[in-house]
């Protein structure tokens, strides 16, 4: 089967600083994959290369077997980080979602009846029915994330790309977003997302790519989330715990707890010692 997305020996640098070196990977139609790695590992640059806003200094990026060339934009639905959105901009949910139709839009400023219908269907599909006329700032974090997902879906993309969709939202919303993505993937949509949440990736994603300037490893989380691979990816001491068929990843504590740094964090309150109540002290490390 021909890969939907293929990076062949791709390198990229900003000036003399290399960001990506010899990256080769495939993404097949229907795959749901996460790109993980520390800050500065080149995740965002890799996304930009496949979105066509950056050009590789070496190698090539192919979508459906065709090389992405400068000035050509691939049929990719992109969901940016919520933190990059201008929430003061006077725009409604419907207007944001309609932006996804811009490639197919008529010359008239108003949306066609078909586009309006499509917006309503997409909003309903993502449980946003009735919010079309609301200002985007007036929504909850989860709803905001789904509005930008709706914009990406309405563009009928070959590939859905999300930049840290679980950043800046609470744990429950992040969980819901990942469930929704899994549901969309089951409907046949190919998804690539970046995330810093290794536990969420381990729990929800069938395929993970560990990146740190180069591809360190890729595969199912249960196969590649090992101490060795994660240490190499994050250049740190990572702890992998497997319990009851579940996988937890944690950075190893530095050997000093908050009590050593701040002996009495709450004035007038004496911390209860581990020995007194039988429970371990909170494992917060600074």
């Amino acid at each position: 089967m021909q890969p939907l997305l293929e990076l062949k020996d791709v390198s990229f640098s900003y000036g003399v600083t290399p960001v990506l070196e010899g990256v080769s990977l495939h993404l097949h139609p229907g795959q749901f994959a996460a790109l993980v790695g520390p800050s500065g590992a080149g995740k965002t640059s890799l996304l930009r290369l496949l979105l066509g806003t950056l050009q590789p200094t070496h190698g090539e990026v192919l979508l459906h077997g065709r090389a992405l060339k400068e000035g050509l934009t691939p049929q990719v639905g992109y969901v940016p980080q919520l933190e990059t959105v201008d929430w003061r901009f006077p725009v409604t949910v419907e207007q944001v979602v309609l932006m996804g139709r811009v490639r197919r839009a008529s010359v008239w400023p108003w949306p066609s009846a078909a586009d309006k219908q499509l917006v309503n269907e997409t909003l309903e599909r993502l449980d946003l029915a009735g919010l079309a006329g609301r200002h985007i700032r007036d929504l909850s974090g989860g709803q905001q994330q789904r509005v930008f997902l709706a914009r990406a879906l309405i563009s009928e993309p070959d590939l859905l790309v999300l930049d840290e969709p679980t950043t800046g939202v609470d744990v429950r919303t992040a969980e819901n977003v990942l469930h929704l993505l899994a549901h969309l993937n089951q409907q046949g949509i190919t998804i690539l997302m970046t995330t810093h949440d290794l536990n969420a990736a381990a729990a929800h994603l069938p395929w993970v790519i560990c990146l740190n300037r180069r591809v360190v490893a890729q595969g199912a989380p249960e196969d590649i989330f090992t101490t060795d691979i994660l240490n190499e990816t994050y250049q740190g001491d990572m702890l992998v715990i497997r319990q009851g068929g579940m996988l937890f990843v944690q950075q190893k504590p530095h050997g000093h707890s908050y009590r050593e740094v701040v002996p009495n964090p709450v004035p007038g309150h004496t911390p209860v010692d581990e020995a007194e109540n039988g429970y371990p002290a909170p494992a917060i490390s600074i």
């Binding site: 934009t73 992109y78 201008d86 901009f89 725009v91 811009v102 400023p109």
Partner: peptide, 23 residues
């Protein structure tokens, strides 16, 4: 502005993402 309404709105809202969506 009338005929470029959709492109201008998207570019004004987020120029980088507008480029990704083909504007």
């Amino acid at each position: 502005i009338f005929f470029l309404y959709k492109q201008l709105l998207f570019t004004t809202f987020d120029a980088e993402v507008a480029r990704i969506y083909g504007v």
